[in-house]
């Protein structure tokens, strides 16, 4: 399904939100770090926003998403609370995981957000579960499982794809082939040129798509979602993209300047801005105004997070057991 003009504007707004949210979060974390207070690890997804947005805008609120260690974008695109996320990053009680999860573990079950994961590939077998539950109950819900190129070399990933295909579960695996797993190039970690080529081995549809083209991602994922809702089983998709910022916050990296510059040319946000202008859907001025509105939303989220209380140490055990 192709997105209409309003949907495209919403996509741009979400991409702006992700970019600004992560830029701001990195700024806060880096400043704190430099001041001697290390807040934790934070994995930004600059350059990959089109994957999260193109995919999640194909989903309903009651569809499920399983995310990764690099999941802020997935959370925002699926409708997670921005102030709740910012508060979580600062370890506050008002955070979307009450300060028990942090950057890699954002949850909002009401939005189908079943968490990021600190274990690379950890979500890939878990995603079978909500998909199985939908099948079991006879609902039309689908589950999207994001994973990295590095994660596709994990054993459970292969078990999961086999089982998903065997039982025709309504799950869509979306690989974000962002060229690296930390500093290891994909070509040194994956034995085939495209992760999606592996679909043939499991007997399910596979497709590789330009992950920096939000509309292309949206179209490809829409087809896989329709396929799953029709009871035809899983798909293994791969979005070719590039992580423009370091693996983790300000971690020092040695990447070729040319490579970075090439990918900056293909920045998914500027590309989409140009596309919307070209098609007469939005003017540059409208886009600037939208970006400005987003900046206000992010600023409010920071204020909310900074003013929120920390969890009370007396409550440290809260949330462990369900009663």
């Amino acid at each position: 399904m192709k997105a209409d003009a309003d949907e495209m504007k919403e996509m741009l707004r979400l991409m702006y939100t992700i970019r600004q949210f992560e830029d701001k979060a990195c700024e806060l974390y880096t400043a704190s770090w430099e001041a001697g207070n290390f807040l934790g690890a934070l994995h930004p997804s600059n350059g990959q926003e089109a994957v999260a947005v193109g995919a999640c805008t194909c989903l309903n609120d009651d569809d499920y998403v399983l995310s990764t260690h690099r999941g802020h974008g997935h959370f925002i695109a699926k409708g997670g609370s921005v102030p709740g996320m910012m508060a979580e990053l600062l370890g506050k009680e008002t955070g979307c995981s009450r300060g028990r999860g942090g950057s890699m573990h954002m949850f909002d079950p009401d939005k189908g957000l079943m968490g990021g994961n600190g274990i690379v590939g950890g979500g890939t077998p878990l995603a079978l579960g909500p998909a199985f539950a939908a099948d079991y109950r006879g609902t039309q819900q689908v589950t999207v499982c994001f994973f990295g190129d590095g994660a596709s070399s994990q054993g459970p990933f292969h078990e999961a794809l086999n089982l998903a295909a065997l039982w025709a579960l309504p799950v869509i695996y979306i690989g974000e082939a962002n060229a690296y797993a930390v500093a290891t190039p994909t070509s040194e970690g994956v034995s085939v040129p495209n992760v999606a080529d592996r679909a043939a081995a499991y007997g399910c549809p596979g497709a590789s798509v330009d992950g920096n083209d939000v509309l292309a991602v949206h179209e490809t994922v829409s087809e896989a979602v329709a396929h799953a809702r029709a009871g035809k089983g899983p798909s293994l998709l791969e979005a070719q993209t590039y992580r423009m910022t370091p693996h983790c916050m300000a971690m020092r990296e040695s990447r070729e300047d040319v490579e970075l510059a090439e990918w900056r040319e293909r920045d998914p946000i500027t590309r989409f801005e140009a596309h919307l202008q070209e098609k007469g859907i939005m003017t540059e001025a409208e886009q600037n105004a939208m970006n400005q509105q987003v900046a206000e939303v992010i600023a409010e989220a920071v204020t909310f997070a900074e003013e929120s209380p920390y969890p009370d140490p007396a409550d440290v055990a809260e949330g462990l057991w369900a009663t």
Partner: peptide
């Protein structure tokens, strides 16, 4: 895979 499926199904 099937233990992961169980964990995910419990979440759902």
């Amino acid at each position: 895979a099937f233990t992961g499926l169980g964990v995910g199904a419990a979440m759902a």
